[in-house]
Amino acid sequence: MARVVVDVMLKPEILDPQGQAVQRALPRLGFEGIGDVRQGKRFELDVEGPVDDAALARIRTVAETFLANTVIEDFTVHVEDRAGS
């Protein structure tokens, strides 16, 4: 079964206080030099049948109408390379 990954991120102009909280915690953990953190969501979709252009188009529709709220979020869709499996 092929896996398609949808990554959803807040748009750059949208304030991300969760990412900021993570960024502020890093020095306390001894990690220096990380200027900014943005937190997003990753969806892994196991697709039945071939992942052709039609399937990808359907998944883009799912991402655009449901997985992401495009008022505040951007998304990308890619097929996960599982070479060797």
């Binding site: 807040l10 949208i14 304030l15 206080p17 969760q18 909280a21 709220n69 008022v71 505040i72």
Partner: peptide, 17 residues
């Protein structure tokens, strides 16, 4: 209502978390 787009914009986690 914002998710349905009957009203514009969106709601997010409180700034204070």
């Amino acid at each position: 209502l914002t998710e349905t787009h009957l009203l514009p914009g969106a709601m997010l986690r409180n700034e204070s978390l």
